[in-house]
Design a protein around this nucleic acid. Structure first.
Lengths: 333, 333
DNA sequence: TATATGGGTGAAAACGATTGCATTATTTGC
DNA sequence: GCAAATAATGCAATCGTTTTCACCCATATA
């Protein structure tokens, strides 16, 4: 590999001069810098990032952490968005590993060892010591969908989205709306609150049995819970599911039982995966704007990295939108 | 951050001794190494990978390249598998970026600049100069689903899988089988060949109109092509789709036209995404073993990295399996 | 007791870049 | 055209680690 030294020798100048020419420190005097740059390109030079990192303490590399497997469309879209947005800023993206090889490395250590300039927490157990350590460390960190004191975060509108969903169902005439939520966590609690608020504002009574718990991304679990709801003395006319996968599970079950969606019962999903628009009927669902979230995350991170002094931590909400679909039907008067 | 120097001072030994103790070079003499290790842990030491990389020319970091957006379940599963398998070997994973910030960096340069020890090409335009450069470089590279001369690769069984699919349809009594394939490329050509071979072995005639082209992951395109096939004077009784998403598009269309799947016509997908088993009817589809592929890829890469001398390049096939599903029906005699 | 043996040790040189400081070359103002 | 100001340059130190080499000390062997 070509080093600065090689270029220096080829040009008959010192290493320092080459470094400065390539980094644009010197105003191009007599075209000398220009010539150096040209020679560098001719020789096929590119900087050794390890050396640069060692000296400058900047790696132009950020870490992303997610503990689950990435088999939800929302996650992979988000990761793509992060990658692209980081690249636009000249940054690379490296995974922070839940199980870092032989080393009993925690996340923070892993990030430091790799000289990462910042970290994005996409999804994790927000109560675990390791994650808290990371979020509260001096390392620039942006967390998605969870608020830590003094830590930047980007929040998809879990609360507001549920309100919107409830309103949408209400406007279609539904008065008996049940909510099957996912596992407990920041996201779930926020959505739950939004659901209750939406109901309260519209004066809807919510029997305790209308609030059910299942698991995220588990169609069978959701279907089973739907069964329970149908056995209620007063079954709901509209059921909100934790996510689109679960919703599809519910849809299957209902069809298998001979119930027509949305004629007999309405369903609403969450996430807006592409497949939701390929089924019959298309899912009525709420779509989070993963690209926008990615953009905001990287913006925050870049600011925290480049202006550590006057960076003020912020909590930024990003809103999505309701996809009409066909699983939410009008209640016959 | 704690440096070797700090530990050396704390222990009253030289930096070299600390380095050797921590790396297990010295047989633990009089428990000294043990004590050094202990002090290191107490002080919260972890190595600076930039420094280590600079000195050793090894980063314990591999790159993965994919040019598309990662919105297919197969890709994200694969990336997860690669990440986990790499971690098991003490390696991290960094994305190689199609558009590397301001730099007009090609893939190879990007990998070198980052001191990556190896690269996995998950998906790319295999004819582009950049990708060829990467694959033919001295940098350990494993390519998935494309064979370059002298370059390691792991091949999902595109060819054999199509034969199996054809056989499965045949055994259900189908004699008029059409194939809608994706965009041209290594994968498509291999599948096409498998399809023809399967038909030939069973003595099935394949009218040229039965071989149609659409796009991968485009339900609408597939649906449209299905329309064309239905207009044939002798329409097929079974249609093979490029992938599950496309297949769902076809399924929707057929249902919309009042045709029953699989009673009136059979469909077979490809990929085995989770959603394929949540629809009604469940998709009959072929599932690639992403975990196994990931495992093989990393195995190859690790060998190429650790034994560059006696590493022999290999082309490894990984087979998947047919998921029965319900969209392939028996032809009434 | 003296001599080989052998591994543990420390000093120091790398790896390739950036950067403070002193110096030299160039430009500017008069 | 000369002094002062300014810009560009080179030297050398430095980032944190690994590793060569010479050295030392302990143990085993004669």
């Amino acid at each position: 590999m070509i080093r600065l030294k090689d270029i220096a020798e080829a040009c008959g100048v010192s290493i320092a001069t080459v470094s400065r020419a390539l980094n644009g420190i010197t105003d191009d005097n007599r075209g000398r810098s220009e010539r150096i740059r040209q020679v560098a390109t001719e020789m096929g030079y590119f900087p050794n990032s390890a050396a640069r990192t060692l000296k400058t303490n900047r790696s132009n590399n950020i870490g992303i952490l997610y503990e689950d497997r990435m088999n939800h469309e929302y996650f992979s879209t988000l990761i793509d968005a992060l990658r692209d947005e980081a690249a636009r800023n000249g940054f690379d993206v490296t995974f922070i590993n839940p199980k870092a090889g032989n080393d009993t490395g925690n996340y923070y250590e892993h990030a430091r060892r790799r000289n990462l300039d910042g970290v994005v927490v996409i999804q994790a157990d927000f109560n675990s010591a390791e994650v808290i350590r990371l979020a509260t460390s001096s390392l620039p960190t942006v967390v998605i969908d969870h608020e830590y004191e003094g830590c930047d975060c980007v929040l998809s509108d879990n609360h507001r989205s549920m309100e919107q969903i409830v309103e949408a169902a209400y406007h279609m005439g539904h008065r008996r709306i049940a909510y099957i939520h996912g596992e407990d966590g920041t996201v779930t609690r926020s959505r739950e609150a939004g659901f209750y608020k939406g109901c309260a504002e519209l004066g809807l009574r919510v029997p305790s049995t209308y609030m059910q718990s299942a698991k995220f991304h588990d169609p069978a679990a959701c279907a089973q819970t739907v069964m329970k709801l149908l056995d209620e003395p007063e079954p709901p006319t509209c059921i909100l599911c934790p996510d689109d996968y679960s919703c599809l599970g519910a849809l299957s079950l209902l069809e298998a039982k001979g119930l027509k969606v949305p004629d007999d019962i309405s369903l609403i999903g969450y996430d807006g995966i592409r497949l939701a628009q390929m089924t019959h009927p298309h899912l009525t669902t709420y779509c989070q704007d993963a690209d926008a979230i990615g953009r905001e995350v990287i913006n925050l991170l870049m600011d925290a990295i480049t202006n550590p002094e006057d960076h003020v931590t912020r909590h930024i909400p990003v809103s999505g939108h309701l996809i009409p679909g066909e699983t939410l039907g009008r209640i016959k008067a």
